[in-house]
């Protein structure tokens, strides 16, 4: 029905090209690079004539070891890149993409570097720590790929503070509405409204199970006597409010659960990286010391 004046302007290209996630960035550029790196390492492993058998101290072992340690330091730099808002044409998405795929390539490089020789020593400790960091990273990449859409649908356009404010608003109404009830009922209601949505164990937050939820208990108390004769209109109002509180609390808990699942691995990934760098330093120093 119409013609537009600036068809094919620069923005056109931008919108379409940039709209890829970190895993698909630049048509899987970094997965391709990582595969090539792995392939070269494997070919080298079988082609290199190392006597008596492949091991870390051979010339090829040193090559792989140097590549591995440089890669580890570069991978660790993501933490700084993310926080240092310098000018320039860099994109954190590209960094993340490279971080994920090159980090996976490290499995191949480092394992070949060991020459499959393991033992109870600092060398194997460094290897184990590295694998732990990579495993937590795989979990991280997986939740980053899967969870965001659930996070988005669960919050239904509300911000976290709006969710908390919504529960507080119900609490104020509960206080008013529970005034005419008998003592035992006001107790339960009070306990429910004083329950903080955040004071909870890590396990509850991650699993989403709250066996001691005061709101759920209050609701059960009300629903079990719903047909008794001494229930007035106040009783029904409180019950409705409790149902609403429960629903909003559930949403808030789902939200904090998803957030926790998205973040928990970092508590392993980052201290693990620091421990890895320490063990790696010990590994390198000891190798050269006993040369």
């Amino acid at each position: 029905m119409a013609s537009t004046p600036h068809a094919g302007m620069r923005a056109d290209h931008k919108a379409v090209a940039d709209h890829d996630g970190f895993l698909r960035h630049a048509r899987f550029r970094w997965i391709k690079v990582a595969l090539v790196v792995c392939l070269i390492a494997l070919i080298g492993y079988f082609a290199a004539d190392v006597k008596p058998r492949p091991y870390g101290g051979s010339w090829y072992g040193y090559t792989l070891g140097t590549a591995g340690v440089l890669l580890i330091f570069w991978l660790a730099l993501l933490g700084i890149r993310k926080r240092a808002m310098t000018a320039g044409r860099w994109s954190l998405k590209a960094w993340t993409s490279a971080h994920v795929y090159l980090g996976l390539a490290l499995v191949v490089i480092a394992t070949l570097h060991t020459g499959f020789q393991f033992g109870w020593n600092v060398h194997t400790l460094a290897y184990a720590l590295m694998m732990l960091v990579i495993a937590s990273g795989i979990y991280g990449a997986a939740v980053y790929a899967v969870l965001p859409s659930t996070l988005s649908s669960n919050r239904e356009q509300l911000t976290l503070s709006q969710m908390v404010e919504g529960i507080r608003a119900i609490d104020r109404q509960l206080h008013e509405a529970a005034q005419p009830l008998t003592h035992s009922y006001t107790e339960v209601v009070l306990a429910a409204s004083e329950e903080s949505p955040f004071a909870t164990s890590l396990w509850s937050r991650l699993s989403g199970k709250y066996p001691h939820c005061a709101t759920a208990r209050a609701l059960t108390a009300f629903q079990n006597v719903a047909s008794s004769p001494d229930t007035g209109p106040a009783f029904a109002t409180v019950e409705t409010l409790l149902i609403r509180r429960k629903a909003q609390l559930d949403r808030l808990r789902r939200q904090t659960r998803l957030k926790a699942l998205l973040e928990i691995w970092l508590y392993l990934h980052i201290p693990g990286t620091i421990a890895l760098i320490a063990a790696l330093t010990a590994h390198i120093v000891s190798v050269f010391y006993y040369w």
């Binding site: 537009t4 302007m9 923005a11 919108a15 379409v16 993310k82 808002m85 998405k93």
Partner: peptide
């Protein structure tokens, strides 16, 4: 390098667009 919000997004969720595009 342009808008910091887009450059600093680790997953590529933040994009800047013009409506006609």
């Amino acid at each position: 390098g342009g808008p910091a919000c887009v450059r600093a997004c680790p997953t590529g969720a933040a994009i800047r667009v013009s409506p006609e595009a």
